[in-house]
Simulated scan of single mutants.
Amino acid sequence: MVEVVDPGVVKTGAYKYEDGTRYVGEWNSKGQKHGMGHLVLPDGTRYDGALIGGLCSGLGVMAFPDGAKYEGEFMQGWFHGHGVFWRADGMKFEGEFRGGRVWGLGLVTFSDGSNGFPRNEGFFQDCRLVRRKRCPEVVQRAQKVAYMARAQCQQM
Rank of each mutant, 00 (worst) to 15 (best):
G37A: 06
H38E: 12
L39I: 06
L39N: 07
V40K: 14
V40D: 06
L41G: 02
L41D: 13
P42D: 12
P42F: 13
G44T: 08
T45E: 13
T45H: 01
Y47N: 04
G49I: 09
L51E: 04
G53N: 14
C56K: 14
S57P: 03
L59C: 09
L59F: 04
M62P: 00
A63C: 07
A63V: 15
P65A: 11
D66R: 03
D66V: 11
G67Q: 07
G67W: 11
A68R: 13
K69E: 09
K69C: 06
G72L: 07
E73I: 05
F74K: 05
M75L: 13
Q76V: 04
W78C: 14
F79P: 04
H80R: 02
H80C: 09
G81V: 04
G81R: 00
H82K: 09
G83M: 08
V84I: 09
F85G: 02
F85H: 12
W86S: 03
R87A: 14
D89M: 01
D89P: 03
G90A: 10
E94N: 00
G95T: 13
E96A: 03
E96M: 06
R98L: 13
R98D: 08
R98K: 13
R98V: 13
G99K: 11
G99S: 08
G100Y: 02
G100M: 03
R101Y: 08
W103L: 02
W103Q: 15
G104M: 07
G104T: 06
G104W: 03
L105W: 13
L105P: 02
L105Q: 13
G106I: 10
L107Y: 10
L107N: 04
V108K: 09
T109Y: 01
F110G: 02
D112P: 09
G113S: 05
N115V: 05
G116P: 11
G116F: 08
P118M: 03
R119W: 01
R119Q: 12
R119A: 01
N120M: 14
E121I: 10
E121W: 07
G122M: 07
F123G: 00
F124H: 06
F124D: 10
D126F: 09
D126V: 12
C127T: 15
C127Y: 15
R128M: 14
R128G: 06
R131G: 02
R131K: 12
K133D: 13
K133E: 15
K133Q: 14
R134A: 14
P136F: 08
P136L: 03
E137D: 12
V138W: 05
V139D: 03
V139T: 03
A142C: 00
Q143M: 10
Q143N: 07
K144W: 06
V145D: 07
V145E: 05
V145F: 08
M148V: 11
M148L: 15
A149G: 08
R150P: 01
R150H: 12
R150L: 08
C153K: 01
C153R: 04
Q155F: 09
